[in-house]
Design a protein around this nucleic acid. Structure first.
Lengths: 345, 345
DNA sequence: ATGAAAGCGCTAACAC
DNA sequence: GTGTTAGCGCTTTCAT
C-alpha cells in the first residue's frame, strides 16, 4: 500500500497496475469525460490499491497553476503599538471572518487558502513565496496608506485583490464598504437620540478606512450642526480605553460617541462606566464592524455592520476572474453598511 | 526585464545570457561554494538583468522538498460554542504567539510557514494539501482528546509535531508545558493568600490541557486541605462570564478562583465585579497563559505563564529534525510554567 | 476513446 | 571548477 519508506506511487505505476497508459490515468484523475466507464473503473481501483496521490510539483510544473491562493495580512512597519503585530492580528475577530468568507467560495472549487502574516521581518519571505509561484494569486489585507506591498505585488505581476481602498492608487481590484456612509449612519442615530455633543474615536489616521470613517463623521456632524471632536485611537481595546480617558478629561460634556471599531468601543465602554457614566443614558456609544466583540460588550454594542464575509467572498471571486482573465481591467466592489441597534445607543 | 505577458525567464535563459551552463547558474543560486568568484559575479548580473526567479515546482519536483511547513490549527468537530471556530481561533492571542515563536526559528532557515485552519469543513482539504506534498511537514495545534487529525497525519507519513500531549497515544513528538505543575502553583498562591474556599473554572474537559489543569488544581487543593469546586468553561471570554455567574450562585462563599485561561479570567473578573465582589480583596483570581488579555484585565491578572513562543520554536526544531532524520524516534519536550503575580491575586 | 511522445524547469551525478 | 546528461512526475498535443 503506502510504503512509507520508499517513494510514493507515481502515475506510471498506477498505469502499469491498471494495464493502461499514463494518459488514461491522468484523464481519470482530472475528470476528463472521454474515458470508457469500464476503464475508468479499473483505473480507480488501481488508484485505490496503490494509494496513489498526485504529485503537485510535477503537475503545477506543467499546468502553471497551483490551485491555491494566499491570504496575506500586511503591516507596513512597526508603529509602536503596545501589542505586537501578530498578537494584534490574531486578536482581531476581523481576520476570522475574512477567512470564513473566502473559504466559502474557494472550497467548493478545490482551491486552498493559505494564510500569511507579512509584518516587516516576514515581508521579503512572503514576497518570495508569492513570486516563486507557490500560489496563483493573493487576497491582500492591507490597511495602511503607505504600505508598499500592494504596489510591489502588482508590479511583480502577482494577481491581487485588496481588502479596501488602497492609500495610493494601485492598478488592481479592491473590495470595500462605504465607510463614510457607515459613519454617517452612526451620527444620524446619535442625533436622533438627541445627542448634541458628539465625539469619535478614530482608527490610526494613516489607514484609509480610519480616514473615511472620520470624514463621514465630520460630514454628518456638520449636516446636523452638532458640537464635535475626535481622538485618534489604534483599533485595539487598550487604545480605546486610552482614547476614552483622554476624551473624558478634555470633553466631559460628550454625550454621544462613534467609535471606529468594536474592539475600541469595548474598551471605551469600560472606561466610561468606571468613570461613573451610564451607557447609553449619559453617553451613547456606537461601534463599527459588528464583530463578536460587539456582543461581548456590556451593554451590548450598537454598531455599523460591514458584511465582511460577503466582502471576502467577493474578493475571492474577483481574484479568480483576474487569474483566469489577466487582460480584463480591474473592477472594484463597494458594499453598503448597515446600522445594528443594540443597547448602547 | 520582466515581460509580464510572456513566460518568466528560466535557468536556461540566464545561462545563455551569462554564457555559462545551467549547472553553473544552479550552483550560484543554491550558494554552492565551488564556483569561480568571477563567474559568480557574471551569473549574478545575468540573474538581475533577466529578473530571474527560480521555479519552485520544478525545483521541488527534483529535490522533493518544498522548504515550507504548515501550521495547522485543528478543531475536531463543532461543539456548539457560541462563536464559530474561525472567529474563536483568531480571537485567541495564543495563535499569534505560536506563529511568532515558530517564525523565529524558521525564518533564518528560509523556510516558509503557511497557516491552515482545519475545522470540519476544511479538514479534508487540508489533509489533501499536506498529502500532496505542498509542505515538508506540519506543526499541529490540536487540543481535543478525540481529534483524529494527529493520527491521520502520522499514518499518512506526514512529519508532524503536536502542540501538546495528544489525547490518544500517537507516535510522534509533542511539546507541552507542565500543566499540572502550573495549576498547582496557582493554588499554592491562593492558599498562601489565606483563601480557603477555592474554585476553578476549567477549559472544555475533552481537552487534555484542561484535564491536566483541573487535575493539578485538585492535587494541590487536597494537599492544602481546602474546600473546592469546579465549573466547566470553554476557554472563551463569554464562557468565563457564564461560569463565573454559575459559581457565584452555587458557591457564593468562594474566595479564590483559578481560571484555566486568561480570556475566561477576564470574563469572570467582570462578572465578579458587576456582582459587587472586589478583586482581589473578596475574590482572588489567577489565570493561565499570560497572554495579552492578562494585561487588559482590571485589575491586571496574576497568571501562570507558559512560554508559548519558546515552545513553538521547539516544535519547529523538533519538526525540522524529524524531516531531516525520519528514522529517529520521536522525542517530546516539557516546559516549566511560571507564576506571574499582578494585581488580581 | 486510447496511447506515444514531447516537454515543463530544475538539480545532481558524473565526466572532464 | 565547469559542462553534459539524465531524469523528477505530470499533462497534453498528436496520432491512431
Amino acid at each position: 500500500m503506502m510504503g512509507s519508506d520508499s517513494r510514493p506511487p507515481t502515475l506510471e505505476q498506477v498505469a502499469n497496475y491498471a494495464g493502461v497508459s499514463r494518459a488514461t490515468v491522468s484523464r481519470v484523475i482530472n475528470g476528463v469525460q472521454t474515458v470508457d466507464p469500464e476503464l475508468r473503473r479499473t483505473v480507480e481501483r488501481a488508484i485505490a490499491a496503490t494509494g496513489y496521490v498526485p504529485n503537485l510539483a510535477a503537475r503545477s510544473l506543467v499546468t502553471r497553476r497551483t490551485d491555491s491562493i494566499a491570504l496575506v495580512v500586511s503591516e507596513p512597519e512597526n508603529r509602536g503599538y503596545e501589542t505586537p503585530f501578530l498578537t494584534r492580528t490574531f486578536t482581531d475577530p476581523y481576520l476570522g471572518r475574512v477567512t470564513a468568507g473566502a473559504q466559502e467560495v474557494l472550497r467548493p472549487l478545490g482551491i486552498h487558502l493559505v494564510i500569511f502574516l507579512a509584518d516587516p521581518p516576514a515581508r521579503s519571505h512572503v514576497l518570495r513565496y508569492l513570486r516563486q509561484g507557490h500560489v496563483d494569486g493573493a487576497l491582500l489585507i492591507s490597511s495602511h496608506v503607505d504600505d508598499p506591498l500592494p504596489g510591489l505585488l502588482v508590479d511583480l505581476g502577482v494577481p491581487v485583490v485588496l481588502s479596501c481602498r488602497p492609500g495610493q492608487p494601485v492598478n488592481t481590484s479592491f473590495v470595500d464598504v462605504d465607510q463614510r456612509a457607515g459613519a454617517r449612519m452612526a451620527v444620524d442615530r446619535l442625533a436622533s437620540l438627541g445627542r448634541r455633543c458628539l465625539a469619535t474615536i478614530t482608527g490610526p489616521l494613516d489607514m484609509p478606512a480610519a480616514q473615511d470613517r472620520l470624514a463621514g463623521f465630520q460630514d454628518a456632524v456638520k449636516a446636523h450642526d452638532l458640537t464635535h471632536t475626535h481622538v485618534e485611537g489604534d483599533f485595539t481595546r487598550g487604545g480605546g480605553e486610552r482614547a476614552a480617558r483622554s476624551l473624558l478629561s478634555t470633553h466631559p460634556e460628550t454625550d454621544g460617541v462613534f467609535v471606529a471599531n468594536d474592539l475600541m468601543a469595548d474598551g471605551a465602554l469600560r472606561v466610561f462606566q468606571e468613570a461613573g457614566r451610564r451607557v447609553p443614558e449619559d453617553v451613547a456609544v456606537i461601534g463599527f464592524d459588528d464583530s463578536t466583540a460587539a456582543l461581548e460588550c456590556h451593554p451590548q454594542l450598537s454598531t455599523v455592520r460591514q458584511p465582511v464575509e460577503e466582502m471576502a467572498g467577493e474578493m475571492a471571486e474577483l481574484l479568480l476572474t483576474r487569474i483566469r482573465e489577466p487582460a480584463r481591467s480591474p473592477r472594484s466592489v463597494i458594499f453598503n453598511p448597515e446600522l445594528i441597534l443594540r443597547a448602547s445607543a
